[in-house]
Structures are given as structure tokens and as C-alpha cells.
Amino acid sequence: MKILKVENLNKVYGKGESEVVALDNVSFEVEEGEFIAIIGPSGSGKSTLLHAIAGLERPTHGKVYFYDKNIYEMNKKELTILRRQKIGIIYQFYNLISTLNVEENILLPIELDKRKVDKKKLDEIIKFLNLENRRKHLPSEISGGQQQKVAIGRALMINPTIILADEPTGNLDTKSSNDIVQTLKKANKEYKQTIIMITHNLEIAKLADRIIQIEDGRILENL
């Protein structure tokens, strides 16, 4: 079942001489349960594409459909709530709230949505991420890899339609990177989680079901 459709997405920064086309007529579709890797060199438009899909950056032209609904027809609040309920985002630099501990960071979107906390699910996710001994630790008290796992846990907690991961291993060493990718792979397999992951590392990209190659804002290949 198609859950995401990107149609003729365009993003242009600047004007005149300093105009930069970050995305040039990008279109593709994502089926439920797919693990997609978007690969490309620096400045190819990968992150811009991901942000446009997440509703974090409005494209110049084009549409993004979640279950046949164009997200750019929603207002700011609806878009925010969509992210809260349907889209899990994992950033390169984790972007955890420094004053909340591991458990609180994972529960943050649930609490923002005023939903009742499913303690069982929380325990399950923490166990899944091997963070049982770090539940009450602050982000400053855990390693980079563990922080990224917390970010994954935050994304998984809301049962999202799709997880968007922007270079999740970009700031990690090889061992941690492998760990993170395996975690994402495991989430995709066990929870049937649809994942779009950006990476510049081909080896990591090969672990995905499909690779979309992007260069100069255009899709080159759909592998």
C-alpha cells in the first residue's frame, strides 16, 4: 500500500545570480514497510528532500501526499500534529532535549500529544534499544550512539507511519553506525516500520530495500 507519494517536488533557494535549485522535479512513491536509502554527494539535495517530506521546509513547487492527502494543504498546526502523530524524525545530531532523561525524551511526542503513556510499549522500546540501564540518564551522560538510539526510540514510540532519518550515522564511529543501522533494520523487520534514510555511505545504503540516488536535486536512479 502506498503511504507516501512525492510529486514534482521543487525547491529553489535565493534569487537571480545567487539562485540555487536544491530539488528539481523530484517524484517517487513509498510502499508501506519499505526501507529506502537516499544516497548522493554533499549538496545533492538529500536533506532538503527529507525536510520537504517531513513538512519542515515548504517546497517551491510540488506536492507530498501522505495516504493521498497533500500535506502542504494543511496549516502549520495541522502539519505539526501530523509530525507528532505520523512522522518520526531522526537527525544527524540527535537533537534531544538536554534537560530530559532518556525515558522522558522517548515519551516527549506522546506527552505533547496529550496521549496516555503506554508503559508496556515504552519498556519494550527501551529493551529493543538496549537502554534499560540508561533510562534515567540525561543525554550528556550517555554516548553518541546511545543518544541516537534515544532519538530512534522517540521516533518509534509514536507508532509513526514513516520514519525519516537524516544521516543518522553521520556523527558516529563505525561500530556505533553499524549498531544504529542494524537497529533501524530491526525496526523495519519487526515493526514493519517504513523508513527513509539519508546517507552518503553506500555500504550502509545497501542494507536498505531500495536505494534512490540523487544528484544536483534530481533523482538519477531508483535501485
Partner: peptide, 12 residues
């Protein structure tokens, strides 16, 4: 921090 909150669903 406010931007992060907004990105994960914290409204204005």
C-alpha cells in the same frame, strides 16, 4: 530547543 520541539510535534 524550541525548534526541536516543533519538529517532533510541539505546536506554537
Amino acid at each position: 530547543e524550541y525548534a526541536i520541539l516543533n519538529s517532533i510535534g510541539g505546536t506554537e
